[in-house]
Design a protein around this nucleic acid. Structure first.
Length: 873
DNA sequence: CGGATCGAC
DNA sequence: CTATGTCGATCCG
């Protein structure tokens, strides 16, 4: 508390009271004055754990300010001058790019929840009410606000401020319905308007306005529905009160009815004897309709009019050349008013001039306090101090400050849109048993998973948030290698973090009052395409829908079907094959003419369908059984656990030898392409065993381009493991290390991959009889895998390229296949697999910096998530 | 990346 | 009688 005195003239209590929303001194005569309100709040709040924590937070802010002031004092005039030049340069650029051509509208429903409750229960209309609970209020009506009752205030404090306060519980369903009604209206003016929460929205009516200029009057006329209002609100609605349409005195054009069609209720309506009944009806109708003009103000009045007609609720609005200004405008004349900033620079600057910085969206209580310490209270001062600010704040911050002080802002509603994280959290009375905490955690994961799935999102970072009974907040985040979206996946990560937190304070229990879960780091479109296949997919290629039957009731079922719906899991080979087929078709049509086009590997062919045709039909009889990926024996077991036991056995029996071999090799890079003779033999045998003879023939045909291999075993080897020492410093070295991983990991899985690959190659044989004929086009060698024309005529170079391509594909697929159902086996191999995963991880997504982890950690994180979906553990 | 903090409603 | 929320974005180390 005392430490604050150091910082200029800001006082300690300011921060706290500000938080309570009492500094705007709006307390009217019927309510309480500011002083009284503060006193009551203090009494109610003092000594509570909450209050203690607030004081602590205030002190932290004060320390920040202190640091900032020290930094300021150290600044040299030299630095300041330089900063001034820089800031001015940017200001000039910004000024030049100023765009006043858009008309942006911000609509804000007045005291939304409270207004809905009042509308639906007339008894509340004259009373001070708030919506929420004894522990927290969401909003209050204007009557209650006079007593200092605000949103985000606990109900029990509000009760002390205003003992007559009626607290209505939240009815979210209802608010959503009303919100929908409002949105229907808004959509007519801007189909791509942007809603913010339930009670706010931005519209860009630029285009609409232009169109409206030519509209006839009747298209801008609205009939006043009296019954509607009578039904919704009170029975006694008086004319001027009912639509405060003429009360927009603040607006620069106070005339509502530009065309002078305005008719007031003061005029005698049906009383005259001079009219026939018919004429009277017409007259009445005319009296009961309004016509809106074509200006922006008129349009917004029309919108507000229609909202009130439809819902019985009022809205405030702001009109300006950008979103930031529009938002500040809507605040200007609330409730039930509107304000416009004309689209010229002077009007904008006039508006900005004396505006307190706190009114600016994005500047909250902390930033306000920091700026205040620098003597900045208004936007003008914000501009004047631009050089100083550029040295004390982050780039994004001071750029934003400069924008604000120049009255600039975004006009693009779209880009404001896409979400970056999603979370859920819950407050409760103290929970201190681990058991309850875990189940709560799981519940949160379940809720969040549902929300995520609604929007089809998957994220890589899971954050656990904990607040203890002293209001201290802690967050723990963990980023995993594959994106999560199901309850199980999220919980697998969250549970671990929760456990370490619980263990951290043991033997004391965690005394929690809040827990939250968040998922962020969403996959972009590119990454979505490469989502891992589930183990079931792996075991039953091409039949995802049936596979889900194998795990009835499991939630991975959901996850799995959803995933296969939302994104076609195009494998590397699927893609290449599709591309190849297409380009073959092109070739047939275009003769050898369009060589350039054939380089395009993008394809509209649906690879999923193809896979179904090619592999699904062959596997049709296997639909209700699983094939062991190790021994290739069909397994009769209907449940995964039994199958896993089998796979365990298989791996134990056959894999040990391979592992032993590899662990002896010191330099994995040199040995990268080396398969033990045993392995090779096994791989080949397996291929044969699985009736892949034809496929191997295909491989054999690669020979044509090489004409040095003779046996099919060697042909196979050629494709899979062509050795070449000088490759270390290129992409190939990657591949090399990956190959090493494959070896270490499980040659069985690779062999399956190859088998699959060849199977697919076989499918393409009809259109492309063999590699030899497919490979040589117009006397140019074309890689049968990537379909890209090769510059070289040297066959061995060409072969090397094909190798690389093939390996790349295998690696890509392997990352999907790496999910082995036997955890212990994988953990044994975690070093090399982990190295691979680490490499993938470090190089994934767009050049952002990555946190380096050990291979083991990568492996573990990866598995933790993947295994959560299976009944292995 | 992880943790804490800020701002909006 | 008790009793201070929920969400997303951004900054800092």
């Amino acid at each position: 508390m005392d430490s604050t005195k150091k910082v200029g003239n800001t006082s300690d209590d300011d921060g706290f009271l500000l938080r309570m929303g009492l500094n705007d001194n709006k307390a009217g005569m019927q309510g309480l004055d500011k002083e009284k309100i503060n006193k009551i709040i203090m009494e109610a709040t003092k000594g509570s754990r909450f209050y203690e924590n607030e004081l602590k937070k205030d002190q932290q802010v004060n320390q920040r300010i202190e640091k900032m002031m020290q930094l300021k004092d150290k600044m040299t005039s030299q630095q300041l001058l330089k900063a001034q030049l820089q800031a001015d340069k940017l200001a000039l650029e910004l000024e030049e790019s100023r765009d006043l051509s858009c008309t942006i509208v911000h609509i804000d429903m007045d005291a939304f929840y409270a207004a809905v409750e009042m509308r639906d229960n007339p008894e509340l209309k004259e009373k001070p009410i708030a919506v929420g609970s004894m522990s927290m209020l969401s909003t209050s009506n204007y009557h209650a606000r006079r007593f200092g009752v605000r949103a985000a205030m606990p109900g029990f404090i509000a009760k002390r401020l205003c003992p007559h306060l009626t607290i209505v519980p939240l009815n979210f369903k209802k608010y959503e319905e009303v919100s929908k009604e409002v949105r229907e209206i808004l959509a007519e003016y801007d189909p791509s308007f942007m809603p913010i929460g339930l009670d706010e929205a931005y519209l860009n009516i630029t285009e609409y306005l232009e169109e409206r200029q030519n509209w006839p009057e009747d298209k801008r006329s609205y009939f006043i529905k009296r019954e509607n209002i009578a039904k919704n609100g009170k029975q006694d609605i008086t004319a001027p009160d009912e639509l405060k349409l003429n009360e927009d005195a603040h607006s620069s054009s106070p005339i509502l009815f530009e065309d002078n069609t305005s008719i007031t209720e003061e005029q005698p309506v049906a009383t005259s004897h001079l009219y026939t009944e018919e004429q009277r009806d017409q007259f009445t109708q005319l009296l009961n309709s309004v016509v809106f003009g074509t200006s922006a103000e008129e349009v917004v009045k029309e919108i507000r009019f229609r909202i009130e007609q439809k819902t019985g609720l009022t809205a405030s609005a702001g009109i300006a050349p950008n979103m930031t200004l529009a938002k500040m405008c809507s605040d200007q004349n609330k409730p039930n008013g509107q304000f416009r900033i004309s689209p010229d620079r002077q009007s904008v600057m006039d508006f900005i001039k004396d505006l307190p910085i706190r009114k600016v969206p994005g500047i909250g209580k902390v930033t306000e306090k920091m700026l205040k310490a620098l003597g900045i209270l208004t936007c003008t001062e914000l501009y004047q101090q631009r050089a100083l600010l550029s040295l004390l704040f982050s780039e994004t911050s001071w750029h934003n400050f400069l924008d604000v002080s120049l009255g600039l802002g975004s006009t693009d509603l779209e880009k404001y849109g896409e979400r970056k994280s999603m979370s859920t959290e819950r407050t409760f009375s103290e929970i201190n048993t681990a058991e309850e905490q875990y189940s709560l955690c799981q519940e949160l994961c379940r809720d969040l998973a549902q929300d995520l799935q609604k929007e089809g999102l998957k994220g890589k970072t899971v954050t656990l948030k904990l607040k203890n009974v002293n209001f201290e907040v802690k967050t723990r985040a963990s980023t995993v290698l594959s994106a999560v979206s199901t309850e199980e996946e999220i919980f697998a990560v969250a549970k671990d973090m929760l456990r370490t937190e619980i263990d951290g304070v043991a033997p004391h229990p965690l005394r929690l009052r809040l827990m939250g879960i968040r998922v962020s780091g969403f996959l972009n479109e590119e990454e979505k395409k490469y989502q891992q296949r589930s183990i079931i997919n792996f075991l039953k290629p091409g039949k995802p829908a049936n596979a889900s039957l194998l795990q009835p009731g499991k939630s991975s079922h959901e996850h799995f079907t959803k995933a296969s719906e939302t994104s076609h899991r195009e494998s590397f080979f699927d893609k290449k094959r599709a591309a190849r087929q297409q380009s073959n078709q092109e070739l047939l049509i275009n003769k050898p003419a369009n060589k350039q086009n054939s380089h395009d590997i993008k394809s509209s062919v649906n690879p999923m369908e193809e896979t179904n045709n090619a592999i699904g039909s062959e596997n049709l009889n296997e639909c209700h059984s699983l094939t062991c990926p190790v021994c290739f024996e069909e397994q009769r077991e209907s449940d995964l656990e039994a199958l896993n036991r089998h796979i365990d056995k298989c791996l134990n029996g056959t894999l040990l030898k391979d592992n032993a071999e590899i662990s002896t090799s010191k330099n994995s890079w040199e040995n990268a392409y080396h398969f033990s003779p045993d392995s090779k033999k096994k791989i080949f045998e397996m291929c044969q065993k699985n009736k892949m003879n034809k496929a191997v023939d295909t491989a054999q045909s690669t020979k044509v381009a090489d004409n040095s291999t003779s046996s099919s075993t060697e042909a196979f080897h050629k494709v899979v493991a062509n050795t070449s020492k000088e490759r270390e410093h290129s992409l190939l070295s990657e591949t090399a290390s990956n190959m090493c991983l494959e070896q270490n990991f499980s040659s069985k899985i690779i062999s399956l991959e190859n088998a699959e690959h060849f199977e697919k190659s076989e499918c393409t044989q009809e259109t492309q009889p063999s590699y030899s004929s497919g490979a040589i086009r117009d006397n140019v060698l074309v890689c049968p895998i990537c379909n890209v024309e090769q510059k070289t005529t040297d066959l061995s170079l060409f072969n090397r390229h094909v190798d690389v391509c093939l390996n790349k594909g295998i690696i890509q697929e392997l990352t999907e296949q790496i999910v082995c159902p036997v955890k212990s086996q994988i953990m044994e191999n975690s070093k090399s697999v982990g190295e691979y995963l680490r490499h993938q991880y470090m190089n994934s997504t767009t050049g952002t910096k990555r946190y380096d982890r050990s291979p083991q950690a990568c492996m573990y994180l990866y598995l933790k998530v993947k295994l959560a979906n299976y009944s292995v553990l």
